[in-house]
Amino acid sequence: MGSIFTIIDMLPAYGLLCYLLVAICIVIAFRAMIRIEGERRRLRVAVVAMLAGSAFVALLAYATYAIAAPYAQPDMVDFYRTYQPVVPLFLTGLFCVQAVSGVAAATGWRRGR
Results as ranks from 00 to 15, higher is better:
1 M>V: 12
105 A>S: 01
107 T>L: 00
89 L>D: 10
39 E>C: 13
18 C>M: 15
79 F>S: 14
90 F>K: 01
62 Y>S: 10
107 T>N: 05
1 M>A: 15
29 A>R: 11
7 I>E: 11
63 A>C: 01
57 V>I: 10
88 P>T: 07
43 L>M: 10
92 T>W: 00
23 A>F: 06
89 L>Y: 10
48 V>A: 09
80 Y>C: 06
110 R>T: 02
94 L>N: 08
83 Y>F: 15
11 L>H: 03
89 L>N: 10
95 F>Y: 02
3 S>T: 09
64 T>M: 06
52 A>L: 05
23 A>H: 00
98 Q>G: 00
13 A>K: 05
50 M>Y: 08
4 I>V: 13
75 D>M: 14
69 A>V: 03
30 F>G: 04
67 I>F: 10
96 C>H: 00
52 A>I: 03
108 G>L: 10
31 R>Y: 02
84 Q>A: 15
88 P>W: 04
110 R>W: 03
95 F>D: 07
79 F>V: 11
99 A>Q: 01
51 L>A: 05
51 L>M: 08
40 R>S: 09
10 M>C: 13
63 A>T: 08
69 A>K: 07
21 L>A: 06
71 Y>G: 08
93 G>Y: 03
60 L>K: 05
42 R>W: 15
54 S>P: 05
5 F>C: 06
79 F>A: 13
93 G>C: 04
73 Q>E: 14
45 V>E: 09
62 Y>K: 12
56 F>C: 04
66 A>G: 12
105 A>I: 04
90 F>E: 00
78 D>T: 14
85 P>Y: 12
41 R>F: 11
79 F>I: 11
51 L>Q: 02
105 A>H: 01
70 P>K: 08
25 C>F: 07
73 Q>H: 15
55 A>M: 09
32 A>N: 09
96 C>S: 06
43 L>C: 06
47 V>K: 02
70 P>L: 07
42 R>C: 14
67 I>A: 11
2 G>R: 15
49 A>K: 11
35 R>M: 12
103 V>Y: 01
89 L>M: 05
43 L>F: 04
109 W>S: 06
30 F>N: 01
15 G>I: 05
38 G>Y: 11
57 V>F: 07
66 A>N: 13
32 A>T: 07
5 F>Y: 13
5 F>T: 12
32 A>G: 01
104 A>C: 09
14 Y>N: 06
33 M>T: 10
47 V>D: 00
44 R>H: 13
75 D>W: 15
73 Q>M: 13
11 L>Y: 11
21 L>W: 01
42 R>Q: 15
80 Y>I: 05
62 Y>L: 13
48 V>R: 07
96 C>G: 08
8 I>G: 08
93 G>A: 07
72 A>T: 13
74 P>R: 12
49 A>Q: 11
64 T>Y: 09
7 I>M: 13
72 A>Q: 08
51 L>I: 10
31 R>I: 05
50 M>L: 14
53 G>P: 03
1 M>N: 09
91 L>S: 00
77 V>Y: 03
28 I>W: 02
41 R>W: 13
87 V>C: 02
68 A>P: 03
13 A>T: 07
43 L>P: 00
55 A>K: 00
102 G>Y: 00
28 I>F: 02
53 G>L: 08
28 I>T: 10
58 A>Y: 10
29 A>L: 10
24 I>L: 06
